[in-house]
Design a binder for these strands. Structure first.
Lengths: 221, 221
DNA sequence: GCATAATGTGACTACCTGGTCACAAAGATA
DNA sequence: TATCTTTGTGACCAGGTAGTCACATTATGC
């Protein structure tokens, strides 16, 4: 948790601090990210960081919960009852996830790193909450749909949830590998993570949902 | 490429060197892995490393191509013509992939890191060859099966290949997340990466293939 | 045995890191 | 204005890193 000093800080300074810190931790894993680089970029003294946060881990944890909260606000704003069936709902959730990404590229990049690339031992204990939350949410969705008879019940629920979670997150690497989207360049140029190739992105998401639908619908004997 | 000195080295010393270096690079990303730790573990002088390899990157590249070659040898030993249909063939390939993992846990862990967790800028240019090779191989398979009418043709081939690749590799995280397999502990105790819970693993693979089959088979209109 | 070549060594350099702390500056209160 | 509290500072510390190089040791060929 941030110290009092940081909470009392001028909001503009606070925002600037988070912006720069987030950029550093989005571009490098915990171990490689450098407090020294952050203070150089901000033009402040190193001691200030330790007036704001206990240590590097404290800062990282704050960034993490901050980004998670922002992302959650995008997801929960879509409500199941507003959609006729699960897959249109899912597509809407996905679209909102993309909005999150468009509007918070650094947050998105940071969470992607935390969820998939991070391996620094110092943060090991804190890595799974993100994936756990995601699959727990999907499990609830899937169970509800299974009750409706729109999703197969012949395979273990955790496997289905894992399957959806993995595929959902893989869109990022799909864009990178197949469409040659260059995340680093997009960010360097201030564009959103996926750049501006929205048609290709939408098409990829639609194709992906086609595959998910086919995989998850109740199977004929 | 290793220097002459390393190639001329006593095979036992050479093997021991690779073993220790691989362990280090399997447990930490490029930037964090430490030459100092390697030489301490080996009980040799640091200078020796630089008699064997140009620099850290040279060593990393050698480990990478070494592990890739080992893994490839497991995969290509399975021949399509020995199996009646694609999915039994795929299951056999997968089983061989698991053999690779059982018999070369550090290699497996290192390649997993290279393919998914690595983000050190120094090795950025070399990261994609692995994924590229995998999806290229899958693309060839899929195209052949599409010609037989056993795999759908209404979605772009690269999407299908990416889909299969992602799901195939996700088995690792599936075991970790759902079955609580602890890779680090297994390796520390000298067990294979997936531990000894082979039944659970086999079952997960079968379930996964069920999902892939359902997703990829030609769809009724 | 002796000279030459190949291999092994570890103190050393230059540079980076997270974190500290005595001090300085600025704000607030009286 | 004078005092007290909060915020900001940056030289400094201990500890880590990759890579070097003059030297010691060992192996090889004659």
């Amino acid at each position: 948790m941030p110290k009092e000093t940081f909470i009392n800080l001028d909001p503009q300074k606070q925002a600037r601090f988070l912006e720069v810190a987030l950029e550093e931790f989005a571009n490098s894993d915990f171990q490689t990210a450098s407090i020294t680089r952050i203070v150089k970029e901000l033009g402040i003294a190193k001691g200030s960081v330790y007036q704001y946060f206990e240590d590097k881990l404290d800062l990282w944890l704050h960034l993490k919960s901050h980004c998670e909260q922002v992302k959650r606000s995008y997801i929960v704003s879509v409500r199941r009852e507003d959609y006729p069936d699960f897959w249109t709902y899912y597509e809407a959730v996905y679209a909102n996830g993309l909005h999150f990404d468009l509007e918070n590229p650094r947050c998105s990049q940071f969470l992607y790193r935390v969820g998939f690339k991070e391996s620094s031992p110092q943060v090991q204990p804190y890595l799974n909450s993100w994936k756990d939350q995601g699959t727990a949410m999907l499990s609830r969705w899937i169970a509800a749909e299974q009750a409706n008879g729109t999703i197969r019940t012949d395979l273990p629920l955790p496997i289905l949830a894992h399957f959806m979670f993995t595929m959902g997150l893989s869109v990022a690497s799909l864009m990178h590998d197949i469409y040659g989207v260059d995340f680093d360049r997009n960010l360097a140029e201030g564009k959103p993570l996926f750049g501006l190739e929205n048609e290709a992105l939408q098409a990829a998401v639609r194709d992906l949902i086609q595959l998910l639908k086919a995989a998850l619908k109740p199977q004929a004997l």
